[in-house]
Design a protein around this nucleic acid. Structure first.
Length: 365
DNA sequence: CAGATTTGACCAGA
DNA sequence: TCTGGTCAAATCTG
């Protein structure tokens, strides 16, 4: 097992080096080879861990992140690497989590890191994978399905989604405890504006729009529906890009998730590198919450449920405060994206890339 | 009181 | 006419 740990640490070091130099060498050819090397290292470690897992409990890698001091004593981890493990790595996961929610159309070719965390988070080659008791994943789904919309209006101008608008469909694991109707956390704040029984579907479809729609004319919307054939998962259809966080006066700058996501994304696509980073410990805490619940207060699809409260008991139930996914599921969803491989960082963070390219381009509605 | 969800009604495309 | 997407009044919570 020691050699496996060494392998992982080696991979982390490579990833760290890559990250540190990414701003300067993102477009360099050697960057790709470095990525591939990291992929190999972690893939190797993954195999070993897998073998280990068969006979023992999951190796407590979380210690790597949560208690680096202790681990350092045991493993003599490079202090710099240790610090990085508590920051950048987490950032990447944070970013990837949020982005994968809506951007699973392509599979990440970025195999930055492979590691395991508690429930078992793995970042594997060509993508990210998380192991957990129950397998569930975020899958990219052809964006050309789902119902067709209607149109605009007469009396009151009804803004309908036009079919030309970008549409991304992802499948995410439904929460297994508490209210399973809770849509996935994706870093944005959503407000539910409708729910409808869909013909041929056992479960109703919920309609959400960006909380900042009125304030910033943000056109982003999403639909959440439980899958008929797999009630343990939800299909989320994102439509329209968020423009709210591009406003200088926007209360919630980029995806509220601990301020790192877009920064990290910028790093990934060669933009000026930010400084802030979130530690994995915080990430885990963010996901699980002190008591295992609650996500970010200002973001997430649960913003409404957590702050407002719904009208009385409904057929669809209410969003509870345990508005978050079990980390294992989320991680699972995040890493097991079954999407196809691409080789562009921008494919991992398309929305952000787009945002950076075409600035304030809203007013779709 | 502000802001959120619920839910029936409305609207328009197929 | 059917169906999916949206509106908005009612209702609820903090």
């Amino acid at each position: 097992m020691d050699d496996t740990i060494s392998l992982i640490l080696h991979g982390c070091k490579l990833a760290k080096d890559l990250e540190l130099n990414l701003a300067n060498s993102a477009s360099q050819p050697e960057t790709l080879s470095k990525c591939e090397e990291i992929i190999r290292v972690f893939a190797n470690a993954r195999e070993r861990l897998h073998v280990h897992q068969l006979g023992t409990t999951l190796y407590p890698l979380p210690m790597l992140f949560r208690e680096p001091q202790d681990l350092q004593q045991q493993q003599n981890i490079d202090p710099i690497l240790q610090e990085w493990l508590g920051t950048s790595c987490t950032s990447a996961m944070e970013t990837l989590f949020h982005q994968t929610q809506g951007v699973m159309a392509e599979r990440s070719a970025l195999g930055l890191i492979e590691s395991k965390i508690g429930g078992g988070i793995q970042m594997g080659s060509g993508g990210l994978a998380i192991e957990s008791g129950s397998r569930s994943d975020v899958q990219a789904v052809d964006a050309s399905d789902s119902g067709r919309g209607s149109s605009s209006s007469s009396k009151r101008p009804r803004t309908r989604i036009n079919d030309d608008a970008e549409k991304r469909t992802v499948r995410v694991p439904a929460q297994q405890f508490g209210n399973t109707e809770i849509p996935p956390e994706d870093g944005f704040s959503w407000r539910k504006y409708g729910q409808k029984e869909i013909l041929g579907s056992r479960f109703p479809r919920a309609y959400y729009r960006c909380t900042n729609q009125n304030l910033y004319n943000c056109p982003a919307k999403k639909q959440v529906q439980r899958l008929d054939d797999d009630p343990c998962r939800l299909e989320v259809v994102y439509r329209g890009e968020h423009t709210c966080h591009m406003s200088a006066t926007a209360p919630s700058a980029p995806p509220p998730a601990p301020g790192i996501t877009q920064e990290m994304a910028q790093t990934m696509i060669g933009q000026p590198q930010p400084s802030a980073a979130t530690s994995l410990g915080r990430w885990v805490e963010f996901r699980l919450g002190p008591g295992g619940g609650a996500g970010s207060s200002s973001s997430s699809s649960m913003a409404a449920g957590s702050s407002g409260g719904a009208a009385g008991p409904s057929t669809a139930g209410r969003f509870g405060k345990e508005a978050d996914y079990p980390i294992s599921d989320m991680a699972d969803a995040m890493f097991n994206s079954g999407s196809s491989s691409t080789n562009s960082m921008e494919l991992i963070f398309p929305s952000i890339s787009e945002e950076k390219r075409d600035q304030p381009s809203d007013k779709n509605n």
